[in-house]
Design a protein around this nucleic acid. Structure first.
Lengths: 213, 213
DNA sequence: CCTCTGGATAGCCAAACGGATGACGCGTCG
DNA sequence: CGACGCGTCATCCGTTTGGCTATCCAGAGG
């Protein structure tokens, strides 16, 4: 609490515009400083190894082979890992859960006001967990209504379903039998309150369980 | 060409982080200046009316009721309208076409290097049309294949499809025979490049042909 | 005037789908 | 320990879907 040390930050985002923006905002704060930037997994590990930052600001939608969640996981696997604050555009259930699971200490949306960003960075640096209001709401909604919470596997099925795959293709992709796929689908239908694939896809996108991109 | 006038710019983006980033980048150029920012349609019209900029940098994924395309259209409908450069994350065919159709003079992706951004802004201000390479490719691909563009009726079918209705229900709802519904669906599938209802719903939402909520 | 497009209609048929029901191994948790 | 959730798999059965081919009509435009 009496740590008036400057918070050292590394940005990981493949958009130059966003990096410049976050950097400009953070550098306006006397107690925050950006010590490095990276655009993908290799550059992130290299930059973090070279600078040993306190906090990593991570974009989830990285262009490279590995998404932000995977990069987060590997960053957190380092010895004496920095705290990771996910700063992204979407707040789908799947994204949030994957990030938290990967070891992120916070989840903030890019449309958050700068003050929230500063608060979040300071909080993360102090070891707190920081969630954007809508993200917290998502998690609360999920834990207060455990009746219709989809399992990981079911979300996985949904994602592929949204790609228009048939049961046979789903089975091949998930390495299970077609019977299992139909079983998952039946559960998904009852949980989402629909009775067809099309309805499930629409409802899943609407409820941000998966995203349409 | 001998116009050494400073290019006056208004930013329209609902992400404070991105606005700050673009502003920081642009202000680093002596011949470019940001004279205003806006987050949605009303604030955009107000800001543009008050500042009369040369160029508007427009994000497509605005949070408000109107997307960037609609805002672009209304901006271009003003007397002596500023040039509009769309600066966004995605380059889906639908987005690009909607932007151009709405009167945008350029389309750039957020992952473009800053130099490209500067060049684009100067070009737009000079009355040129500026397209990102991948965007240009999209347009070329389309002009060689002018096959797709859903009719009103087909979009109507899609909307109901996303509600999970079966063909029989679709027929009742649309006051046509089931055969007609199947005919529409077949056309939709070929136009969207899918072969199932679920795929069609996902693609339609992705391309913003219908809304998911 | 004739063509083109969008919309509506029809029948056929194999394949896919959704519902129901039951079962098994495996963790967790009271 | 026993109940429970989860993921897995299976069989049966009626319904739906998607692909195909073909016709008809009204309005727009060359």
């Amino acid at each position: 609490m009496t740590t008036d040390r400057i918070v050292r930050i590394v940005l990981v985002d493949d958009h130059p515009v966003v990096r410049a923006g976050v950097r400009a905002l953070l550098e306006g704060q006397p107690d925050l400083t950006v010590v490095g930037e990276a655009v993908d997994l290799p550059s992130a590990l290299a930059t973090i190894g070279a600078t040993h930052p306190d906090v990593v600001l991570m974009d989830l939608n990285l262009a490279g082979r590995e998404g932000g969640a995977e990069v987060t996981r590997q960053v957190r696997a380092l010895p004496e890992p920095p705290a990771v604050l996910v700063l992204t555009t979407y707040d789908t259930e799947a994204d949030v859960l994957a990030s938290i699971d990967a070891g992120a200490g916070g989840y903030l949306l890019k449309d958050a006001p700068p003050e929230d960003l500063f608060r979040a960075v300071r909080g993360i640096a102090a070891g707190e967990t920081v969630l954007a209001p809508s993200v917290a709401a998502t998690l609360v909604r999920r834990s207060t209504r455990p009746a219709d919470a989809l399992t990981e596997r079911e979300v996985e099925v949904l994602r592929l379903l949204a790609a228009g795959l048939a049961n046979k293709q789903l089975a091949r992709e998930l390495l299970v039998s077609e019977a299992t796929v139909k079983s998952h689908l039946a559960h998904i239908y009852t949980k989402l309150g629909v009775d067809s694939r099309a309805g499930a896809v629409a409802k899943a996108i609407e409820q941000r369980i998966i995203r349409a991109s």
